[in-house]
């Protein structure tokens, strides 16, 4: 069926690579306005104008009559309704998951590595992206979707760093969902063999529930946060593939116990990989780039 108008002309749809021969085909659709007429009845809305100039009306209505019902009414009648239980057994997030699957198909077709970056606010997601784009923007062919409740600030930073970016402002929403990503992708015009960074809303709770269709989920923690973050927000660490430990340049000034953090995180997710980095000094970024490159190979 034609996806545009639903006209049922399957036969006309052909698929060709741009350089193949015989790629011309015609597919005529008439989506223009078809002549049609609307009939409107205005009977119900007609205004009745009454003019009463220089005279008065005297209306009196007497209604004196009684209603007697010297017989019994019975109220025996059958209700023609039935009750039914609908066994639906449907995942409440099924709509999101369907959209996520569509996004995943789009990424596969374009050979896009899509990374969903999640963290609490202030962990350094945008700074990590700025450095990544500045140093590897060309090589990785970076595109960015920014998620925040308000402002274009992050998108402006990313654009300045040199990557095409769409900002999603969620208003009151506390997370991005797959439907929002699908809409953003339609505007982003991604090219093949590229890397998409989705910077989720800063929040370690809700974004864990929403699959965006990403290839991998990257959780970012900064060493100024507590070592027990994975214990406090297990859902997020359990569903992530890589953990970037940011701001390691501050370690000499802090009491952050790296070993304790790694142990707690591995308890929640033994498969989680870790890369300590500093968006300020660039420490660990080579490892981060190597990890991204590996994702495209799989």
């Amino acid at each position: 069926m034609c996806g545009t108008c639903g006209c049922g002309d399957d036969d006309h749809i052909t698929y060709h690579k741009p350089n193949e021969e015989n790629q011309e085909h015609s597919h005529l659709h008439h989506h223009g306005p078809v002549a049609h007429t609307h009939f409107h009845r205005h009977n119900d809305h007609q205004l009745s104008l009454h003019q009463h100039q220089g005279h008065s009306h005297d209306h009196s209505h007497d209604h004196e009559h009684t209603h007697d019902h010297p017989h019994d009414h019975t109220h025996d009648h059958t209700h023609l309704t039935t009750t039914q239980t609908v066994q639906i057994q449907r995942n409440i997030l099924s709509k999101n998951e369907l959209e996520a699957a569509r996004n995943r198909g789009y990424f596969d077709a374009l050979k896009v590595v899509a990374l969903n970056l999640v963290s609490s606010p202030g962990s350094g997601k945008t700074s990590i992206l700025e450095r990544t784009i500045t140093e590897k923007g060309r090589e990785l062919n970076c595109f960015v979707i920014e998620g925040d409740q308000q402002t274009m600030n992050d998108a402006q930073r990313i654009e300045k760093a040199g990557a095409p970016v769409i900002q999603i402002n969620t208003g009151n929403g506390c997370h991005l969902d797959a439907i929002m990503i699908g809409k953003a992708l339609r505007q982003l015009n991604m090219s093949t063999n590229s890397t998409l960074f989705i910077e989720n809303v800063g929040n370690l709770v809700c974004p864990a529930l929403f699959d965006l269709g990403e290839s991998k989920r990257v959780v970012i923690i900064s060493v100024t946060e507590g070592e027990d973050k994975p214990a406090k927000y297990p859902n997020m660490f359990e569903t992530s593939h890589l953990c970037l430990i940011n701001k390691v340049d501050l370690l000499p000034y802090l009491d952050f116990d790296m070993e304790k953090f790694l142990n707690i995180a591995k308890t929640v997710n033994p498969m989680l990989q870790f890369i300590p980095i500093s968006a300020k000094t660039g420490e660990g970024f080579d490892q981060w780039y190597a990890w991204i490159s590996q994702q495209g190979v799989e």
Partner: peptide
């Protein structure tokens, strides 16, 4: 689990 298991309806 995060499911709608079932729901009951009244039909005409």
């Amino acid at each position: 689990e995060l499911n709608i298991k079932s729901f009951d309806i009244v039909k005409p």
